[in-house]
Design a protein around this nucleic acid. Structure first.
Length: 463
RNA sequence: UCCUCGAUAGCUCAACGGUAGAGCAACCGGCUGUUAACCGGUAGGUUGUAGGUUCGAAUCCUACUCGGGGAGCCA
């Protein structure tokens, strides 16, 4: 008999009622009495469990009654209406074969565990309600993002993970090397001689695929990347990880407002898709993680995102009457407390903040006509903060070269990036979306370590 | 990296200078429709590590390690 999944049972209950089926899955709990008992079975395909009823007619009744949580079993039997209040149908077991026992020290209990504890058993936590919901949403959201871009004729570009460019400008990098640390080759100046290294030069893990993405944008018009990114920042916060996934679209013949339109459409489309396709998971989050989640996400899909310039934001903050730890001042970056005030108190919805002072933004962002701000945009969302950062890129070769000089950067390092402006450079814009931050926003989970399977953070690379 | 709070049984917590406890899990037994099942019993601890104060330290002090929250860096 072909095994059926619990997802199929829930989706087409009528087709299976009073039919014989086989289900393979893992035991969540067993409740046994003298002559019969119940098993909560989860097969990984659906958020809800299947209740299996068994009795002493099973030849291995005694072993089944003693099954511990976590054990894997194969159950054959008939799908029947359930008299119980908590499920409409159940599986009346004819046979239960034990595939693999879980020993008595199985660390997951029926009781609620803290997320901190579950992080120490990250290899087992996908078997819990919360993490099964998180990682199904993560998978569906990833699909929704690909679907969004593919349907709009964006080309999915795989930018390199090992980069020879040490000038991506987005943070501290992890070095990639095959050199022997005990006897590193040195040149005459006693510096490490990277010409002896695997690539013959210094290489690192990428902190952003943007620069390479721009190159493909100048060929395909609309591209996106979706891949892992690495930052060696000593950031100890619930919103930062050393390894995380980022989506970076780049569009040609487009300006900052096209860019924001794209970002807004993408977010709304992704949220709608997840709400529609993960209703059990989303209801679970709304009940047990964040009671305002569904209201908030529903509002986002319907709302028009706010738009203000950095300069307007500073004025709003100054007039707010709020006592900020860091008083808002033009020319200084917005503090977390400022961003929270803008998005949570002043607007109560996602807000694009645009046109930041050039001093606090990256060299590649397009200079505005005022010569003091650049065409940058950050999207701030309630609860999570900055979820998207992007800009219109500087397409004018001489302006870009001037900016590189002003910032004391080395033009040779950007030779191929400057070529893109030299050979048919076009206006273009793009942004980076932190995928984990999107998942936090979608699920209400408050720690990035709980929305990535095996989180890498400072001092933590177990598993 | 800075500030702040914390670490006691497998898990979640109590004991707040004077004999380390409970619930759950585990183990043994009972129970004819349970659903965080229920009832009875058993076992489980150098109180994160290293020092110090004290007649006496889980409790007070110092350092370190790890974790939470906040900040910076950002996505």
């Amino acid at each position: 008999m072909e095994p059926v999944t619990i997802r199929e049972l829930y989706a087409q209950k009528e087709n299976y009622l009073n039919k014989k089926v086989q289900i393979n899955g893992w035991v969540r709990t067993v409740r046994s009495s003298k002559t019969f008992g119940f098993i909560e079975l989860n097969d990984g395909t659906f958020f809800s469990n299947l209740q299996v009823v068994y009795d002493e007619s099973l030849p291995n009744y005694k072993e089944v009654a003693k099954l511990g949580a976590g054990s894997s079993i194969r159950v054959s039997g008939q799908v029947v209406e359930s008299p119980g209040a908590k499920q409409s149908f159940e599986l009346k077991a004819a046979t239960i074969e034990i595939e693999g026992l879980a020993s008595a020290d199985y660390p997951l209990q029926k009781k609620r565990h803290t997320f901190e504890y579950l992080r120490t058993i990250a290899h087992l936590r996908p078997r819990t309600n919360t993490f099964s919901a998180v990682f199904r949403v993560r998978s569906v959201a990833a699909y929704a993002i690909h679907k969004f871009f593919q349907e709009r004729d964006f080309i999915y570009v795989h930018t390199p993970i090992i980069t020879g460019s040490d000038a991506e400008g987005a943070g501290e990098m992890f070095r990639v090397t095959t050199l022997d640390f005990d006897k590193t080759p040195r040149n005459e100046q006693k510096e490490v001689d990277f010409t002896k290294d695997f690539f013959g030069k210094e290489t690192n893990l990428t902190v952003s695929g943007q620069l390479e993405g721009e190159s493909y944008c100048m060929a395909f018009n609309k591209i996106y990347t979706f891949g892992p990114t690495f930052r060696a920042e000593n950031s100890n916060t619930p919103r930062h990880a050393a390894e995380f996934w980022m989506i970076e679209p780049e569009i040609a013949f487009a300006d900052l407002s096209d860019n924001m339109k794209l970002a807004e459409d993408m977010l709304k489309s992704t949220i709608s898709y997840v709400l529609e396709h993960c209703s059990e998971e989303m209801n679970f989050f709304n009940s047990f993680v964040d009671k305002s989640l569904l209201d908030r996400l529903g509002n986002i899909v319907r709302a028009k995102f706010g738009h203000i310039t950095y300069s307007e934001a500073i004025e709003i903050l100054k007039k707010s009457g709020e006592r900020f730890e860091y008083p808002p001042e033009w020319g200084f970056d917005l503090q977390t407390e400022h961003e929270r005030y803008i998005t949570e108190n002043h607007f109560g919805k996602p807000v694009f903040v645009t046109d930041y002072p050039k001093e606090i933004k990256a060299f590649y962002m397009r200079m505005n006509d005022d010569d003091r701000t650049v065409a940058a945009m950050d999207l701030l969302v309630p609860g999570v903060g900055e979820i998207i950062g992007g800009s219109q890129r500087e397409e004018r070769l001489e302006v870009l070269e001037k900016r590189i000089d002003e910032l004391g950067l080395n033009k040779e390092d950007y030779w191929w990036y400057l070529d893109l402006r030299k050979y048919g450079g076009a206006r273009h814009a793009g942004y980076g979306l932190g995928f984990e931050r999107l998942i936090m926003y979608l699920t209400g989970m408050t720690n990035i370590r709980d929305v990535i399977s095996f989180p890498r953070t400072p001092k933590n690379a177990e598993f």
